[in-house]
């Protein structure tokens, strides 16, 4: 705790060797699978990277990645806003919770793929269909996290804060938000990962551009190398978000959450959902 920030960052980067080793092991298994089943079923890691590189040189990858990121983040932000506001209302009022909870449960129960079909019918093959799909499949998660966070706000901490006559800004920033974040963060992390997966799926079916569209084209051409190349691109995106954004925040939160219920279990953004 007393170590410098630079030391902590160095520790974090050094800890990456473990993750690197585990990824290399997976690559070795992949290579072995390639040896056993041949190129059509499982192209070698090297050919896959070459295919991705070729597509990148042709100027296809970056626009697709940007398009997918825009759709995923757009849907995620809309979901955070909607889920956050409604979740806060449900956490603060029993009546709102009774009203909204069944709807959230219902929405969670509808498979993401069904939303893709519906939104294609409603919005046509545009980016809007993708964003909408991400919104409805992610918002219930964030709704649940926010509602739980607001409902469990500690009344005695509030009383303590009021006894010191704290201004509303300090009450929000020092008392409410840190507590909320401990419930909201796992939901946000899971929601972010989910929104990427749902985006690719919706793009694949809608042909609205992005990585999903590239995958659809590779499928039509029966080009396994390109398909794997696109998978590599989306996995790279997910890993970047996970280790450059989410994991540092998670570590920061865990400094004080070590002994609290649920601490340490916040890992895993692997919410499937479809």
């Amino acid at each position: 705790m007393t170590r410098s920030r630079a030391g902590r960052i160095l520790d974090y980067v050094w800890g990456g060797w473990g993750a690197g080793a585990s990824l290399l092991l997976l690559t070795a298994l992949w290579e072995a699978g390639h040896g056993a089943y041949g190129t059509l079923v499982l192209p070698s890691p090297r050919d896959t990277v070459a295919a991705l590189w070729g597509m990148a040189e042709a100027g296809k990858v970056l626009p697709a990645v940007l398009e997918t990121s825009r759709n995923a983040l757009g849907g995620f932000l809309a979901a955070t806003l909607a889920g956050g506001v409604l979740g806060a209302a449900a956490g603060a009022s029993d009546m709102m919770r009774r009203l909204l909870q069944p709807i959230a449960t219902l929405l969670l129960g509808i498979p993401a793929i069904a939303w893709v079909v519906l939104s294609l019918l409603w919005f046509g093959g545009t980016g809007l269909a993708v964003v909408f799909t991400v919104l409805v499949s992610t918002a219930p998660l964030i709704f649940a996290g926010t509602a739980q966070g607001v409902r469990t706000l500690d009344g005695s901490l509030r009383r303590m804060a009021l006894s010191f006559r704290v201004p509303a800004r300090v009450l929000l920033w020092d008392v409410y938000l840190p507590h909320m974040l401990s419930y909201l963060f796992p939901a946000l992390a899971a929601g972010l990962a989910l929104s990427w997966k749902v985006t690719v799926m919706a793009e694949l079916l809608s042909g609205a551009g992005g990585i999903g569209d590239g995958l659809a084209t590779a499928r039509v051409q029966v080009d396994t190398e390109k398909a794997m190349g696109w998978v590599l691109a989306v996995v790279g995106l997910l890993l970047a978000v996970e280790y450059l954004l989410l994991e540092p925040i998670r570590r920061h939160l865990q400094v004080w959450r070590r002994e609290m219920p649920g601490a340490g279990g916040t890992g895993g953004t692997g919410a499937g959902g479809f």
Partner: peptide
Amino acid sequence: FQDPCLLPWR
């Protein structure tokens, strides 16, 4: 107070 009411995140 009886409970120290400390902020767990500080």
